[in-house]
């Protein structure tokens, strides 16, 4: 029997992986992907809870999250394109003209 807890544990693992990736990777593109992982984890939670509670709110909220995630990705990728034009790199460590 697959309970809600199964989904929640899975989502927690996914969230943690997203955070770890964000901390260890310096490539902007990969960092953006890790953020998407975190949002997906939150969505898994929302849907699982929605089913548990028999409440549509979670599903509706997940629609918003997906839409906003797409918008975020578009803007993030826009920044990447501009960055590459200017500095020829997507390395976050090298995006540093100001001191610490």
């Amino acid at each position: 029997m697959i309970t809600t807890t199964h989904y929640l544990v899975l989502s927690l693992i996914l969230f943690t992986l997203g955070v770890v990736g964000l901390m260890v990777r310096r490539n902007f593109i990969t960092v953006l992907m890790c953020i998407e992982l975190m949002l997906n984890a939150a969505n898994l939670n929302f849907i699982a809870f929605s089913r548990q509670l028999g409440d549509l709110t979670g599903q509706v909220f997940a629609v918003f999250v997906i839409t906003i995630a797409a918008a975020e990705a578009a803007i993030g990728l826009g920044i990447i394109v501009a960055l590459v034009r200017l500095k020829q790199t997507t390395d976050l460590d090298r995006v540093n003209v100001m001191e610490g």
């Binding site: 593109i29 990705a73 990728l77 990447i80 394109v81 590459v84 790199t89 997507t90």
Partner: peptide
Amino acid sequence: LFLFVIMLVKARAIP
């Protein structure tokens, strides 16, 4: 979108 940008920025930009 991701794949498109990855193609656009080319390998040399990837750390």
